[in-house]
Amino acid sequence: MPKPPDPSRLADTSDLIACASCDAVYRVARPDYGERTVCERCHSVLIAPRRAAGLKIIAVALAAVILIFAAALFPFMAINVAGARNAVSLLDAALAFQGGPLVFVSLVTVALILFIPLARMLLVLYVIAPLVAGRTPARGARTAFRWAEDLRPWSMAEIFAIGCAVSLIKISDLANVSLGPAFWMFAVLVVLVVVQDTFMCRWSVWNALDKATRS
């Protein structure tokens, strides 16, 4: 049976970190840039700082915001069968569910592939930009970062990309499919979203928010 911890040592808990998956507690040891600390028993990543992560995150988020708008509006795909032609944008595709309750699926699709990725990027910009500029955090920065983290599993651009690939193969022997500019913008966007997540170290952001508020 482990001895109860010495209360005097625990009065200040600010140098402790707990693994969110398994509740193991460690004393914070900051790894070098590019390295990471991992929970010893469940192997969840605890801290993974990157050099100049703030600037990189801002650059990627700005690019992603522009791409999301462009990808939503430009032609995404077009098909051609015996002279009949139809071109659609990403918004058209997302809003394809019509008639009664199916509208709900349209709303969900638009949210999952456009609005939530966009919202996450804007929230991240709102939180990180003042930190990188060395100012005090924007008002509500903590809530904003919480939302950005909560929305993470609901941002499904990369899954939509697989859906595109499947649809392409599915209709390519029935019709002539051509890819519009928005298709390639969306492809880049998917890569950016994935890259963004590798730069983002949750612990480092919270720590920076802490420090910026105290000073």
Binding site: A18, Y26, P31, R41
Partner: peptide, 23 residues
């Protein structure tokens, strides 16, 4: 990518959960 070990917060060699430490 290199992994860095962290010191366990408990005095014993066992990994302790926050709950076990009264946290």
């Amino acid at each position: 990518m290199q992994m860095v070990g962290m010191e366990r917060a408990g005095q014993s060699h066992q990994i302790l959960s926050a709950r076990q430490m009264g946290l």
